[in-house]
Design a protein around this nucleic acid. Structure first.
Lengths: 168, 168
DNA sequence: TAAAACTTTCAATAAGTATTGAAAGTATAA
DNA sequence: TTATACTTTCAATACTTATTGAAAGTTTTA
């Protein structure tokens, strides 16, 4: 396969994967583009490469900054802003985990804690099933939260070798 | 908080969480409804409780079956089909991991393998950055795949206690 | 201070996804 | 076999989310 075809394919695939993870397609494509780019790119470059409007490029570049997946790079003597992606995939994965934990897991934990306070007549099957489900879910979520937290503190070597060895 | 309000809140929250994970809101809500129901429910029950159409209820119940998160329950002497959700949250989590691994991680691995074959002139920075990114990603994905595979074989006790102890 | 070079916003619109409901399909019972 | 009790399908439609592009905003340079 030729390089251009490969790039195209990768950008497409990353965009599709993003969609099934609740990430807007263009955002994932911009990320893919920057991941495989040896140099930093401007908004114009992104518009050009992906054939998207200025507004769209701008909005998704900002979103990627919010997620901590890319950063601005200022070239001396130039006014335009350029963007680079973090290239270390383990760092990328950790950052995504960190953000989703903050944006989804933690709010869900707060809701589950609130729902543990639900009152139901003792002996009511509905109330018992509810309490049971909420408690189990809260328990699992708490454990997942702690596990993720630990993973995030671990470095790649630890995660990928010691941990792997232990697991097999 | 009263039981009814709690149920409502949980169904809403689960639906919202689903959306940010690429899962259709109604599907997540049907799942939530069954998770907190002490008895199995029919399509009619689901339509009633969530105020959705027959078509919608049917389609999402099927999708949940495809994901292996709920199953049919036939009541002796009744023609109608009833559905129950797996209540063990660890099993639920494992099943979701299993499915997403199959539906997303594995296809992505196949694509990355294909993209490792991309030809680029030696010394071309673009080609080198591309190859580098693909290789790193393939490497991380393979490791994640193996780790998930191992996790799926582990039982709850192992995962949540031995593993947790080791991690801290 | 004004013009130029850029970035951001946002209302309009397009594109994508989910939902409805009635009709068609299927299986059981009479 | 026909009627009944369900389940499934799917074209039309509603709803949600993403995208555009022009205008407004901001910063730098002359």
């Amino acid at each position: 396969m030729q390089l251009e075809e490969g790039k195209e394919k990768f950008i497409q695939a990353w965009g599709t994967l993003g969609s099934s993870w609740g990430i807007n397609r263009t955002m994932a494509q911009v990320h893919a583009l920057l991941l495989i780019s040896p140099t930093s790119l401007s908004t114009e470059d992104v518009m050009q490469e992906l054939s998207v409007s200025r507004g769209n490029a701008n909005m998704n570049l900002r979103a990627l900054m919010d997620w901590g997946l890319i950063s601005k790079e200022l070239r001396p003597g130039e006014r335009k802003e350029y963007f680079v992606a973090e290239k270390d995939m383990w760092k990328v994965a950790k950052q995504v985990i960190r953000e989703r934990r903050k944006r989804e897991l933690e709010p869900m934990l707060r809701i589950l804690e609130e729902l543990k306070q639900v009152e139901g007549k003792k002996g009511d099957r509905d109330a018992e099933a509810f309490t049971q489900a909420i408690n189990n879910l809260h328990d699992l979520s708490t454990k997942a939260d702690k596990t993720l937290n630990t993973m995030l503190r671990a470095d790649e070597h630890w995660f990928l070798s010691s941990f792997m060895k232990l697991m097999r």
